[in-house]
Each structure stands twice: as structure tokens, then as C-alpha cells.
Design a protein around this nucleic acid. Sequence first.
DNA 1: GTCTATATCAGGATAGAC
DNA 2: GTCTATCCTGATATAGAC
Lengths: 197, 197
Amino acid sequence: MPEPVSATRREELLAIAAGLFAEKGFKNTTVRDIADAAGILSGSLYHHFDSKESMVDEILQTFQTELFGQYEDIIAGDLDPLAKLERAVVVSFETIDKHRDEVAIFQNEAAYLLTFDRFSYLAERNRQSREVWLTLLQGGIDAGVLRDDLDLELTYRFIRDTVWVAVSWYRPGGRHTHTEIARQYLSILLEGIHHHA
Amino acid sequence: MPEPVSATRREELLAIAAGLFAEKGFKNTTVRDIADAAGILSGSLYHHFDSKESMVDEILQTFQTELFGQYEDIIAGDLDPLAKLERAVVVSFETIDKHRDEVAIFQNEAAYLLTFDRFSYLAERNRQSREVWLTLLQGGIDAGVLRDDLDLELTYRFIRDTVWVAVSWYRPGGRHTHTEIARQYLSILLEGIHHHA
DNA sequence: GTCTATATCAGGATAGAC
DNA sequence: GTCTATCCTGATATAGAC
């Protein structure tokens, strides 16, 4: 059964809301802000959505389904361990490029949203993300291509943090493409910034 | 002239507020939350402070004066370029350990606070922080101890992000001391995670 | 230095008309 | 699908008593 025409409007409104949530924060964005940006009145929003929470909920769920599907594909794929890790980093920077607002919301608002029961799935996603990176790292260590003298947990946090925090400054159309950023980040992560003569 | 006794109470209240701002966010912490945590009523807070904004203002100013003083000392000091960079990283992790709340507030709330005129000095601090890291990196490159094939701006962001974002997960008394975390992070940053046989 | 009491306002949400 | 009108709650801040 085809999506009704109103789904388009729904997605428009969600995109507007996502932009505001990402820029100003969830709590700090009012339903009136969203309605203003959409050119309607705040009451009209409730024809489309139950609540402000429902909006951010739908935004995050859609985004995460896509992202984690990509990670699973990489792990299940047949690249060698190092290439898998590199691919996961590249996909993450692609995601920042393609879903900037959603990534920013997840980064900045997850802690707050987790205080509500309906967002407890975010904790599960965090757990899943940790699994992905630990699996990739352990694969590289087992294959002998990654250092085995580092604390795995710290290394995982280092990678996760450096990848996602880039959403705070990356803007499409800036000095570097997301591909170039991924390339340089991987170069630092893999080889370090120390110069060996 | 000695600080009046009431300064102690003032600092107590600021420490309580800082903890809440760091944990729940500035906007999401109410003056009643702060008063509750202090065991007084919300109206009583206004005997000590003009407004909620004044509280976060004082918290950030005190903290930043100390932190940037340390960076200036490092740059003005006589360590070699690599040691200066390492020292700046170590000092940053020490700061996360010692002033967790303040770092978290600066990390999470600066963007929002910058929308108010009274917090425009935060933009200046960001500029200053960029200067510090760029100076340290350029010093290392000029001395031939750091790679010169990386984009300086990206490298700066990589380091800055990696260092400060650790405040989101670091807790004193956890599995690793801040010194150990700094050591491992520096090892990744300088040498990379690639294993060279 | 804290409390009582309260002014004032903004924000989320609803009901029913158009 | 949007608007009008409005309810209700919770938040910052104030004034003056204790």
C-alpha cells in the first residue's frame, strides 16, 4: 500500500524540526519555533504528530536503522580486517555529510532523551555501536595488522569520539570533502602524527 | 583584604550548580533543582546571585582563567616542541579530571550560551584555544618531529576533539587514571594504531 | 541567609471551527 | 490541513517578613 501524499508533508516537517533540534537542542526548540519555520501555527503541528517527543523519536529511529544496517553489512562482508575498519570510518563520515542533523541530535541529546522510557532504545544503540567497533578492532588485532599493546576500550572510545564529534564543525561545501576528512583522519589514526625520519 | 565567610557558601552553591549544569544541561536545570540540591528554596538563591546566567558565567570564567594560564605557561616554557605538545595533552586530561563539570559545561553549552551577548567571550576563548594548538603543532612541524603532510586545521580539530570529548565518559575512579588515558591517547595520536611488523 | 508568597511569562498541548 | 482560542503547567525572578 502506497504512502499517502501527506507523508511528504510529514517528512518536510520532520526535516525542519531536525534542523532546529540539531542547531538549538531539543529542549531549547519550541513547537512554536518549528511551526514558525514551517509557516504554520503551533496547534497545526498536532495534526501530524502526537508531541514534540514523537518528532525527535521518528527522526532518530529512521536514521539509526539506516546507519546500523550499513555497519552490519561491513562486518558481514568479505573485506580484510583493515579495510573493514577503514570502510566503517568512511561510512561514518559519509553519514555526517548526509545526515548531519540526525547525527548532531543523537550526539547532543541522547543523554537527555535517555531519561525518558520511550527512548531507552538509544542505550541499546550505544551498546550496539560499541560492539561494532570492538569487533572491527579485535579483527584487526587478531590478523596482526593492528597494535595489540593498547587498551581496547580506550581505543574504541578514541575512534568513536573522533568520528562523531566532527559533526560539531563539519559543514558540506567547506574546505574539505567528507571523503578527504575521512582520509586524513584515518591517516592520523593508523599512522600517527609523529614524523619518522 | 580576606574573602568574606559567605564566599565559601557562594562557592558551594556554584559547585552544586555546576554539577547539575554538567549533568542535565544549563537550560534543562531549573533554579529549583539547584536550590533543592543545596537544601534551600529557589528564592533564596537570588540572595547570592543575580540570575541563573550569572551562575554559569562565574563558573566558566574562573575555570577558563586557570586553564588558559596553564597553556600559556607551556608555550612560554623551554620544553622541546614535542614535549610541549605532550604536556598540553596531559594538562587537558588533568583538567578533565579536576574540573569535569566545568569542561562538560563548556563543551555542551557554549553553542547555546554564545547566543547571549554576555557570553561572547566564549568565542574569544575558542579562538585562543585554536591558537594554542596550532602554535604547538607548527612548532613540532618546524622542528621536524611532526608530519608535514597533514592538513594543519584538520589535525588541530582532531586533537582538540579527542581531548575534550573524553569528558563525556571519563569518571575519576574508573578503570584508568587520567594519566594513563593521556598516555594511551598520546601513543595513538603520535604513533597510530597500525601495527608495523 | 533563608523563607513565604506571588507576579509574570513561556511552552506543550487540546478542542472545535473553517 | 490549518487556524482560533485557550488551558495548564512549570520556570525565572521579585518583595518583604523572619
